[in-house]
Computed example of a mutant assay.
Amino acid sequence: MMRWTVHSEETLYQDKWVHLLTADVELPDGRHLDHRLIRTSAAGAGLVVVEDDKVLLIWRHRFITDTYGWEIPLGSIEPGEDPATAAAREAEEETGWKPHGPIEPLLYTQPSPGLMGSEHYLFRANAATYTGPPSDDFESDKVDWVPLGDVYDLIRDRQITAGTTLNALLMVLANTR
Rank of each mutant, 00 (worst) to 15 (best):
H35S: 00
H35C: 02
H35T: 07
H35Q: 11
R36L: 11
R39N: 09
R39T: 14
S41C: 06
G44R: 11
A45L: 03
G46T: 01
L47T: 07
L47Q: 10
V48A: 13
V49T: 13
V49F: 04
V49R: 08
D53F: 05
D53G: 12
D53K: 10
K54R: 15
V55G: 01
L56Q: 09
L56W: 09
L56G: 14
L57Y: 07
L57E: 10
I58S: 14
I58M: 13
R60C: 01
R62S: 07
F63N: 06
I64S: 15
I64T: 15
T65D: 10
D66H: 06
D66T: 13
D66R: 12
T67R: 15
G69C: 04
G69P: 03
G69D: 03
W70D: 03
E71I: 07
I72R: 11
L74P: 12
G75H: 04
G75P: 04
G75T: 04
S76V: 10
I77E: 01
P79V: 07
G80I: 05
G80D: 04
G80A: 03
E81Y: 03
E81S: 02
E81P: 07
E81A: 00
E81K: 06
E81N: 06
D82K: 06
D82M: 02
D82R: 01
P83M: 11
A86Q: 08
A86P: 09
A86M: 08
A87L: 10
A87F: 03
R89E: 09
R89S: 13
R89P: 10
E90V: 15
E90Y: 04
E92I: 02
E94Q: 13
E94I: 04
T95G: 08
T95N: 06
G96M: 02
W97G: 03
W97F: 14
W97Y: 15
H100M: 10
G101Y: 08
G101N: 11
P102R: 13
P102S: 11
P102I: 04
I103N: 10
I103Y: 08
I103T: 13
E104K: 11
E104G: 05
P105C: 02
P105Q: 04
P105Y: 02
L106Q: 12
L106M: 12
L106P: 14
L107A: 14
L107S: 14
Y108C: 13
Y108R: 15
T109S: 08
P111M: 12
P111A: 06
P111V: 08
S112K: 09
P113D: 12
P113A: 05
G114R: 09
L115G: 04
M116S: 13
G117I: 07
G117Y: 08
S118G: 09
E119Y: 02
E119I: 10
H120M: 10
Y121A: 12
Y121S: 12
L122F: 10
F123Y: 15
R124D: 02
R124L: 10
R124N: 01
A127P: 01
A127I: 00
A128H: 05
T129Q: 14
T129A: 15
Y130Q: 10
Y130E: 13
T131A: 06
T131E: 13
P134N: 00
P134G: 02
S135K: 15
S135Y: 00
D136F: 01
D136H: 09
D136E: 05
D137H: 01
E139V: 00
S140E: 02
S140I: 00
S140G: 06
D141V: 00
K142H: 05
V143S: 09
D144T: 02
P147S: 08
P147G: 11
L148N: 05
G149C: 04
G149N: 13
D150P: 03
V151F: 04
